[in-house]
Write a protein that binds this DNA or RNA. Structure first.
Lengths: 206, 206
DNA sequence: GCGCTACTGAACGGTTGCGTATCGTCCTGC
DNA sequence: GCAGGACGATACGCAACCGTTCAGTAGCGC
C-alpha cells in the first residue's frame, strides 16, 4: 500500500514543486501504518511517538515536520479508517441489513482494524477531541447508512414511515459492539443475523 | 457514608487489636470516594495519586500504606460499585424487564456513578485487569439478572425454553450503552421501554 | 515513660513522554 | 557548484507521575 490519492504527498505534480530536497514518498503512510499497528497492539495511552518513529523507520523529527502534535497524527490516522462503502440495494429491508452487517463483520474480522476500533472506542470516552472525530467520521456515517436503508424500505411501503429506525440501529450496532468490546467475545455473524431478523419484524409490526 | 461493613477497618473489635496507634476510621472510604470523584471528573488517565491524596485530605504515604499500587486502589474502588439489585418479580416478562430498566435508568441518572461507569468502560478496553473486574463485578451480574428474568418467563410458559435471551440482553444493554457512551446522548427511558416492547414480542414470537 | 504504629508534609529518584534544537548529510532544481 | 529544504541521529528542556524515604508528631497499650 503506497500513498493513497486521498492525501497526496506534496511532491505531487499539481503543486508547484518547492525548492530543496523533496519529501520521501510513502513516509506519511508508513507513519500512519506504524501508528495503527501500535495502537492495535497496545492502545493509545501506551503508544509513544518514539515507538511510532522507530517502527516506521523514521526519525521523530520527520514526524513532527508533518504533524504538529501527537493529537493531529491520531486524528489523521483515523481518517484513513473511514469507510467509503456505498449502501447496497438488495430490494428488501432484510436483505439490505444483512448485506450491511456482512461488510461490518468483515471489518471486525480483520484483527488490526477491530483492535484499533476497540482501542479508539475506549479512548474516545475520555478524549473529547477524538470522540468528536470518531463519532463524525466512523459512527455517524454508518448510522446514516442504516437510515438510508430504512428510508428505502419506507419508500417501498415495507415498513411504516414513522418507524423508529434509530433505536433499532442502536440496538444492532450496540449489541455487536457490546459483545466484542465489553464482553471481549469474538464477533458472531449468526448473532447479527438473528438480531436483524427481529429488527425487521419489529419494524414491520409496529 | 461511613466505612461499610464490606471491608471493615482493621480497628474492628473482632480482630485482636494491633499494638500502636490505631488507623483513623474512615480514611479508606474517604480515599475511595475521592478517587471515584476524580475519575468521574477527569477519567482514569488524568487522575494522579497526588490529586487523590489532596482531595481525600490525606498524605500520599497513607494511601500507599493501604494499597500497594495505583492499580490496587483502582480495583478496590470499583469493588464498591458492585450491584446489589434484586431481580424484580412482577409476574410477567415485560413487567420484570421494565422494572429492571427503571432501576438501571435510575443509576444512570446519578451523574457521578454514570461518569465513573463510562470512564471505567473506556479504561477497561485497554486495561485487562480492570476489564476482568468490571466484567465480573458490574456487567455479568446484570446479565445474570436478565437471565433469571427470562428463566422465570420460561417457567411460566410465557416464552419458549430455547429463547435466545442472551442476544436480546446484549441488544438491550448495548443499545443503551451505545447511546450514552458512544453517541454521548442522555439516557432515554422511553427508548428503553420501546426496546423492551420489541424484545418481548420477539421472545414470544420466536 | 517506653515501644509500637499511624499519620503528615515535603522532598527525592527514577521514569516517561512531548516537542524542540542542533548538526551533519542527502537530494533536487537552477 | 550552490542554495534550500528533507532527513537521520541524538541530545535536550520541561513537565508529570509513581512510589519511596525521612523527620517529626500523635495516639494507644503496657
Amino acid at each position: 500500500m503506497t500513498d493513497g490519492p486521498g492525501q497526496p504527498e506534496r511532491t505531487g505534480a499539481g503543486t508547484s514543486p518547492r525548492p530543496g530536497r523533496p519529501r520521501v514518498a510513502g513516509t506519511r503512510q508508513r507513519v500512519i501504518e506504524a501508528y495503527l499497528d501500535l495502537v492495535a497492539e497496545q492502545g493509545h495511552a501506551a503508544t509513544s511517538m518514539d515507538q511510532v518513529a522507530e517502527r516506521a523507520g523514521v526519525a521523530k523529527t520527520t514526524i513532527y515536520r508533518r504533524w504538529p502534535s501527537r493529537d493531529d497524527l491520531t486524528i489523521d490516522a483515523h481518517q484513513s479508517l473511514v469507510d467509503t462503502t456505498v449502501p447496497p440495494d438488495t430490494g428488501s429491508l432484510e436483505g439490505d441489513l444483512r448485506a450491511l452487517a456482512g461488510t461490518v463483520m468483515a471489518v471486525l474480522a480483520r484483527p488490526r482494524e477491530a483492535r484499533v476500533m476497540q482501542a479508539s472506542l475506549g479512548e474516545m470516552l475520555t478524549n473529547e477531541r477524538l470522540a468528536a472525530l470518531y463519532r463524525g467520521q466512523i459512527i455517524e456515517p454508518r448510522i446514516a447508512l442504516i437510515g438510508r436503508i430504512f428510508q428505502r424500505a419506507v419508500d417501498r411501503g415495507e415498513v411504516p414511515p414513522d418507524v423508529d429506525w434509530r433505536t433499532l440501529a442502536y440496538a444492532l450496532l450496540g449489541a455487536n459492539i457490546f459483545r466484542v468490546s465489553v464482553m471481549a467475545e469474538p464477533p458472531d455473524p449468526a448473532m447479527a443475523q438473528r438480531l436483524i431478523g427481529w429488527i425487521v419484524s419489529s419494524a414491520r409490526g409496529e
